[in-house]
Computed example of a mutant assay.
Amino acid sequence: WLIRELAQVWIDFESNLLKVPIITKIHDGKLSLEDYKLLLLDLRQQVIDGSQWISRAASNIDIEIFELRSAFIKHTAAEHKDYQMLERNYEKLGESIKTIQEGEKNIGSVALSSFMFQQASKPNPIDLLGSMFIIEGIGKRLAAFWGEMIKDQLSLTDDQVSFFTYHGVADENHFHNLEKAINHPLMDIDLAKRIVKTAKTTARLYQMQLEELGNY
């Protein structure tokens, strides 16, 4: 049931993303360099929170369900370098690293990060597997594809799009960890429903983050 529901959440999310202006531009070959810089600038402000909410979630998971906790911890280690890669890509575009480091979250990122930290602060926030499913799905299924299109459209080099292209490779491993967690013996229908709801919420807020680029 859970896998089927999550698959539907993903299908809806992916089709909704195609209506988001920045994604439409990428697909239509109409992305400008300024659009891309803004995308990096805004993504970095939310990505930097990634390893923090996952760490917080892991610390709130009981030792009795250690296997599930380890799925979060593995995820944290992998996420930790992401924002630095974003910063390097931005700098390679000729921009000041200080600009991206001092940027602020757009209103969609504020909502997304607030939700993540709120969930992560609850006891045993296993439902955040739903968030990880969405975020890793972006990495596994979309990021490398977007990265290649951006690179071709704007005639960029690998070190200017590596945040996107790296994810297509790195998140293959992430996803395997997540599948193991989802098939855990402790998974029951109530927990499964919570995971699906959290996945849906994360998907909507992630979309909002992309819709609100530049809106601070």
Rank of each mutant, 00 (worst) to 15 (best):
S114M: 03
I107M: 10
I135M: 11
E104C: 15
L112Q: 02
I63E: 15
K92D: 13
S131A: 09
D62Q: 06
I73W: 05
D82A: 08
E87N: 12
G50W: 03
Q84S: 11
Q119T: 07
I107N: 14
A144T: 04
I138M: 13
A78Y: 07
R88V: 03
Y83A: 13
I107A: 09
L68C: 03
Q52K: 15
V110I: 08
L142Q: 12
K105Q: 14
G130C: 02
K98E: 13
A120S: 13
K92N: 15
G137D: 02
G108Q: 02
A111S: 14
E87V: 09
L86Q: 11
I134A: 00
D49W: 10
D127P: 04
E104Y: 15
M132P: 03
G94I: 03
Q118G: 08
E64D: 12
R88N: 06
L142H: 10
E87T: 10
H75V: 04
I97T: 14
R69L: 02
K140G: 11
D82P: 00
L112N: 06
G147N: 01
Q52N: 15
G103P: 03
F117Y: 13
P125L: 09
I100T: 04
E102F: 11
A77F: 13
I138C: 12
N60M: 05
P125S: 06
S131P: 02
A78F: 07
S96T: 01
G139D: 05
A71D: 03
I65G: 05
A120E: 02
G94H: 00
T76W: 10
M85S: 04
G137Y: 05
M132K: 02
Q118I: 00
I138T: 10
N124H: 05
S131L: 05
A111E: 14
I97D: 11
A71P: 05
Y90W: 08
E67Q: 12
L142Y: 06
R141D: 02
S121G: 02
K105P: 09
Y90Q: 07
S131M: 07
S51D: 11
K140S: 10
N89P: 06
E87W: 00
F117I: 09
Q101K: 09
L128T: 01
S109L: 07
Q84N: 13
W53C: 03
H80Y: 04
G108R: 02
E104N: 15
F145Q: 14
A143T: 04
K92A: 14
